[in-house]
């Protein structure tokens, strides 16, 4: 009797699990399917449940393989390379100033420490849009609005905060004893840093660089205020085609989605959960 009851309970739980699985699959992949369908829909008129004809015309057009005036899409290759260039420069500069700062926060007791911590925590706690708006005001006066350097500065701002926290957490995880051992055999602080701390921190620093890279690639709000209408990054092409050109917008969205998922899957295990959610 008892075993029948346990069996019943098991079946009930399994049924609930399968229902949850199906529901979750629909929930997560439903919106994604919509994106994929639109990206290959040559013709999709309401109320057909699926596109009337499918093809890769919008993909070819967006990737610059084909140039036809009949298809409402332009090559996004220039925007892609602009985004890539901005992201690479952003990573180099942001990490060059984030690594020393992260190291200092991890290894030294700093006077006014709370104030400095506040400075790096506030962007997570308060909305950032008013910052961009006021930067636009300032940048307009000094000629940085609508320029690539202006956009890079904003991307550094967005990435730097995460860069500093991730590197600081990484340096903190390196045992002090290792550094002390190096010093006790006569290495000076620079040598200790480059021979001991830096190599040990390398995986964390790499993860943090990749993170800053992706944040820059996907950055929207700052670029919207500082860059438009002259600096057209990939997310800006998505924005300007969104709403009236479903096919083209869907193609760009998928192109943006691929590196994000790929890189984040690679580095997520190294990162603290809190930072992973900070993007976008």
């Amino acid at each position: 009797m008892r075993s029948i009851l346990i069996n019943r309970k098991r079946i009930l739980i399994l049924t609930l699990e399968i229902l949850l699985l199906l529901f979750s699959l629909l929930l997560i992949f439903g919106p994604m399917t919509s994106l994929v369908l639109w990206s290959i829909a040559d013709k999709w008129f309401w109320p057909n449940p699926v596109p009337q004809s499918i093809g890769l015309d919008y993909w070819k057009q967006a990737l610059g393989i084909q140039k036809s005036l009949a298809i409402g899409a332009v090559s996004i290759v220039p925007a892609f390379f602009l985004s890539l260039m901005i992201a690479v420069i952003t990573v180099v500069i942001a990490m060059a100033i984030a690594i020393p700062a992260g190291y200092a926060l991890a290894k030294y007791k700093i006077p006014f420490g709370t104030f400095i911590l506040f400075l790096f925590l506030m962007p997570n706690a308060f909305p950032q849009q008013p910052i961009f708006v006021n930067l636009l005001d300032t940048f307009t006066k000094i000629g940085l609005a609508g320029t690539v350097p202006g956009v890079i500065i904003v991307h550094i701002l967005v990435g730097l905060v995460f860069g500093v926290w991730i590197t600081s957490a990484t340096f903190k995880s390196i045992p002090v004893q290792l550094e002390e051992a190096a010093r006790s055999v006569g290495a000076n602080s620079l040598k200790t840093f480059f021979r001991i701390s830096l190599p040990l921190a390398a995986p964390g620093l790499l993860a943090s660089s990749v993170f800053v890279f992706i944040t820059s690639l996907d950055e929207f709000t700052g670029t919207f205020f500082i860059g438009l209408p002259f600096v057209i990054t990939l997310p800006m092409t998505l924005y300007s085609s969104s709403g009236y050109n479903m096919q083209f917008a869907s193609v760009i969205a998928i192109i943006l989605l691929i590196p994000s998922i790929l890189f984040m899957t690679l580095i997520q295990r190294v990162l603290k959960a809190e930072y992973v959610g900070g993007m976008g």
Partner: peptide
């Protein structure tokens, strides 16, 4: 999965979905 998808892509997804 959704954590890694930037808001701008989520916005376009929801826009069509």
């Amino acid at each position: 999965l959704p954590i890694f998808i930037p808001f701008v892509v989520v916005a376009q997804m929801m826009n069509s979905f």
